[in-house]
Design a protein around this nucleic acid. Structure first.
Length: 419
DNA sequence: TCTGGGGTCCTAGGACCC
DNA sequence: TCTGGGGTCCTAGGACCC
């Protein structure tokens, strides 16, 4: 059996951990730039606030109904996620951390009769130890465990649900709510007369493969109880990306260049943290697709690096080179980003036969990068950085409603008063 | 006025090999 | 006049996920 443990309204629940006074208050959390709603508590959902709506569309409603609104605080959410995951992994090592708020457990060694009780206790332990409420779906495949979790959350309002003996639920779930079926395929499936998870499960798998590919074929088999997806325990990323919308539209190439350098440094920091080197770098820019009154433009440029590297100076030079290749005057840019790819572990990197850096060069780069890490680890991220990032950061994003980094900044530690 | 960021996998087609 | 069969690798684009 597989179990899917899923944190309820995760980002909103994180905010609540440090604001117990908001236990029953509707809360929403906004995306970067305070753009869209990306998390809602049950109370906020009940007010009709939909996932992903632009904040300005519901701002008035939030004010009227006293909804607490937060900018996203990824440092806090990442840290609480790590706590939740480590508790789960302590209890059950065969666990795949699937996303910031979800994990799959393969319960193969647990007697079938013990599964429900085990999950019940796990759910209570996570709540007690972290303050984060979760729900757990149980099923014979990952896809069915997902279905179970969906039923638990949206239909039954229970913390734990095992779907194994209750497969009639499949006919009560829209095909678009099945894991692996998105918008496009929902349209296509509906046109074939497929509306529910049950309809999908009874399709002929060779037809599904022909019309939709091997991915959906697996989904169909999984719905029928045949496990095709295994636990993915690998934790090495294949690409690392940093990108963000600007606080306002930018036309100045200098600011664009600063933004790209900034993202390059962010991606580089993630690279260093995982002890990886990159051999591929790409940069993209785009205008605001919602401003059809302005000229639309979007482009990217990629480089394959001669040698895999984690040298921030070299990566930034490459990123700026890519930007110069694609930047076009007169465009109102809304967003830019940097992606690092062809990642490999630093110990196993393969240098170019004809352009190998000397030992001295490698030693020098290593020393400089280590020093950057040392200073930034001791005095805080970005204490020392490249001047290419700029100083004014006038392009940086809005997040006016952000809470303190309670768990990762000494200066932001919350104070508790005891009476 | 204001519309997120970061990933994965699969497929088709083109270039290349013998 | 007539021009094969079997591969690999890479990239771009499209689908999906949270």
């Amino acid at each position: 059996m597989y179990a899917l443990i899923d944190c309820n309204s995760f980002y909103a629940s994180c905010e609540r951990v440090f604001r117990p006074d908001l236990r029953h208050t509707p809360i929403i959390v906004l995306s970067n730039n305070d753009g869209c709603v990306i998390a809602r508590t049950t109370e906020a959902k009940a007010l009709g606030i939909k996932m992903g709506v632009p904040y300005f569309e519901v701002k008035a409603l939030c004010k009227k109904c006293h909804v607490q609104v937060f900018s996203s605080n990824y440092t806090l959410y990442g840290d609480l996620s790590a706590r939740v995951m480590s508790i789960i992994q302590d209890v059950w090592p065969e666990t795949e951390v699937y996303s910031i708020d979800e994990a799959f457990l393969h319960l193969r060694t647990l007697p079938l009769g013990a599964v429900d009780v085990f999950c019940d206790e796990l759910q209570r332990k996570v709540l007690k130890d972290t303050g984060i409420p979760t729900s757990i779906g149980i099923g014979p495949t990952k896809t069915l465990a997902k279905i179970a979790s969906h039923v638990a959350k949206t239909k039954l309002n229970t913390a734990v649900f095992n779907v194994i003996s209750q497969l009639h639920w499949l006919s009560l779930i829209s095909v678009g709510d099945v894991w692996g079926v998105g918008r496009q395929w929902t349209k296509k499936l509906n046109a074939l007369g497929v509306y529910t998870a049950q309809d999908l499960a009874s399709l002929d798998i060779s037809l599904v493969k022909r019309r939709f590919g091997v991915g959906l074929q697996r989904t169909v088999m999984e719905l029928n109880g045949r496990a095709c997806l295994t636990l993915d325990l690998g934790e090495v990323k294949k690409t690392i990306m940093s990108s963000c919308s600007f606080g306002s539209l930018q036309t100045d190439e200098q600011y664009l260049s600063e933004g790209v350098s900034h993202h390059c440094a962010t991606a580089w920091a993630k690279l260093r943290k995982q002890n990886l080197v990159a051999q591929h770098l790409s940069v993209f820019v785009r205008s605001n697709p919602f401003r059809q009154d302005l000229e639309q433009y979007s482009s990217s440029f990629a480089l394959r690096l001669t040698n895999p590297t984690d040298d921030l100076r070299y990566l930034t030079r490459c990123a700026k080179f890519c930007l110069r290749k694609i930047v076009k005057p007169g465009i109102h840019y809304q967003k830019c980003g940097v992606m690092l790819g062809d990642l490999m572990s630093k110990e196993r990197r393969q240098m170019d036969l004809f352009h190998q850096p000397s030992y001295d060069e490698i030693a020098h780069t290593t020393a400089v990068m280590n020093t950057l890490d040392l200073i930034n680890n001791k005095y805080g991220a970005r204490t020392i950085r490249l001047a290419a990032e700029g100083f004014s950061k006038s392009w940086s994003m809005k997040n006016q409603l952000k809470t303190p980094s309670y768990t990762t900044q000494w200066s932001d530690l919350p104070t508790a008063y005891v009476r």
